[in-house]
Design a binder for these strands. Structure first.
Length: 483
RNA sequence: GGCGCUAUCGUCUAGUGGUUAGGACACCACGCUUUCAAUGUGGUAACCGGGGUUCGAUCCCCCGUAGCGCUACCA
């Protein structure tokens, strides 16, 4: 059975790059009727952030990529949090010592630092000098008995090369003399990533390791470890990185990288997922819109690209707008409700009508707050330049007065009534064309642009319209009189 | 510095030993529209450079160049 895993460290939030990795893992698993595992790599105690695991789970749930096995979910190969598996690593690393594939190292951090400083100063590659590699058993036993702090390092063969077979990149060969005698077990008894990920992937029966490109250079060490243990290796696939607009590795500095940031701004999970799927993968035809289920059908690693992809917010925004326009209205409304202006929640019917009207213009749900504000406001602010262009024209006042009279005589309001009503206004004022319409728009909305007036008028009630026309008249006369 | 990965419009990408090098976002123009948006039509825009191989290279090979990644008792 195909089994994949997403193995983040719990450092606080789910990164969009991490989400893409999780998605690809999920897709491969689901496409093959396999399992998708979530594993928490918390072997660095210093970097642990409380609540990070819950946050991770919550965000994965939001986008609809739920692990089959993992912390809080369970599964046959748990626990799925590495800090709860310490004895497993400690036991297994001993077998490596016994086989002569690993060794105790008693070098102090200070010595290591000095070594590194010297190497850097002399333009040598910074690597461990294997000082403890050939310590005799007696010496090791003595130092251990003295309880000298120690780590366990892996032995890299002194010659040869390791070839990585990668589903995306083909074969990549690394000479052994470029590899370091990597620490496997730290002095605090925790494993390093290299040890823990190999052991866990094996014990959890992971068949495909799909992870970021930053792991490619350490993959030969992992391969060596599989061989030392005598275990079957999983398939590897290293994904290109997500980049900032300046092509550096996608980082917080240059915009939002946390999934929750996009959630907060009113991006739809389907849109974010769809966009991320296309960053590095394409279906081989010109289709771009895919549901998660459709991605499961269509996805394949063969069509995953090798080069880094810039995270293009503009296209995400477009795609989000597309999803907003094509979503089921009911679901959209449910997601949209928190974004309406405070106070408007007492009038859900109106919220609903407003959403219908402004839906096409939205790129994210957060825009609802601003774009719906005038529907719910007590009073509008007319004092800004974009509408002054219309309201401050000398012809505006007669139009407003005529509009006001017309609205007074109405007993009910509908979009269909607007055209005859405007006909009357034009007749009365002798003005035609764009201006009367724009004056009405500005008076009713406080803006020079927005949804169609006959829609607006259906939502605003008659008294509200009358009030706004009066407000606009007051504003215009006050301006005219220089107050 | 060493090792490794990568290289098609501004961006995401398709593609081929001979193509008008295709699509999408963005951008521009036009249409629709009382405004904006949505939408429709059209348009501008790309094969990193140099050598080979070949009748012919964007595509295959080599060398550069550039970008990125790794180079921890971090993941």
């Amino acid at each position: 059975m195909i089994k994949t895993r997403f193995a983040p460290s719990p450092t606080g939030f789910l990164h969009v790059g991490g989400l893409r990795t999780a998605l690809y893992n999920y897709l491969i698993a689901k496409k093959n009727n396999g399992k998708f595992v979530l594993r928490i790599e918390d072997t660095d105690q210093r970097r642990k952030i409380p609540g990070a695991v819950e946050n991770l789970l919550e965000n994965l749930k939001w986008v609809g990529i739920e692990p089959d096995e993992g912390p809080g979910i369970g599964g046959p190969d748990g626990p799925y949090i590495q800090s709860q598996r310490l004895s497993i690593y400690q036991e297994l690393v001993q077998t490596l010592i016994e086989k002569g594939c690993a060794y105790y190292c008693f070098c102090s951090p200070e010595r290591l630092q000095q070594l590194k400083d010297w190497q850097v100063a002399h333009h040598q590659p910074p690597r461990y000098d294997q000082h403890c590699r050939n310590l005799g058993p007696a010496a090791v036993k003595r130092l251990l008995d003295e309880e000298q702090p120690s780590v366990i390092r892996m032995k890299i063969p002194s010659e040869g090369a390791v070839t990585v077979t990668d589903l995306i990149r083909g074969t990549v060969t690394f000479p052994c003399d470029q590899l370091d005698d990597q620490v496997l077990l730290k002095s605090d008894g925790f494993p390093t990533y290299h040890l823990a990920n190999v052991i866990d992937d094996h014990l959890m029966h992971i068949t495909h390791v799909i992870r970021g490109e930053e792991w490619l250079p350490s993959t030969p060490k992992h391969i060596l470890l599989y061989d030392y243990f005598g275990w079957e290796k999983p398939q590897f696939a290293h994904l290109s990185l997500l980049l900032n607009p300046d092509k550096s590795k996608l980082s917080k500095r240059q915009g939002d990288v946390a999934v929750e940031d996009y959630r907060r701004q009113g991006y739809l999970p389907e849109a974010l997922l769809n966009y991320l799927a296309l960053l590095g993968w394409n279906p081989g035809n010109e289709r771009e819109i895919f549901s998660l289920e459709e991605l499961v059908q269509e996805f394949s690693l063969e069509r995953v690209g090798k080069s880094g992809a810039i995270f293009n917010l503009e296209k995400l925004r477009w795609m989000n707008g597309y999803y907003i326009r094509h979503y089921s209205f009911e679901r959209l409304f449910n997601l949209a409700r928190p974004f309406f202006p405070p106070g408007s929640e007492t009038n859900p019917d109106k919220q609903l009508k407003v959403l219908e009207i402004i839906r096409d213009s939205l790129l994210n749900l957060q825009e609802i707050t601003e774009k719906s504000a005038f529907f719910f406001a007590e009073h509008l602010d007319y004092n800004h330049s974009s509408i002054g262009e219309w309201l401050l024209k000398p012809e505006a006042l007669p139009v407003l007065n005529s509009l006001s009279a017309e609205f007074q005589s109405l007993t009910s309001l509908s979009g269909a009534r607007l055209v005859p009503l405007m006909g009357n206004v034009m007749k009365a004022t002798g003005l035609r064309g764009k201006l009367p319409w724009m004056v009405l728009r500005c008076a009713l909305t406080g803006q020079s642009q927005g949804p169609e007036l006959h829609h607006i008028v259906e939502v605003l009630d008659l008294n509200q319209c009358r009030q706004r026309l009066q407000d606009a008249i007051h504003f215009v006369t006050a301006k005219r009189d220089g107050r």
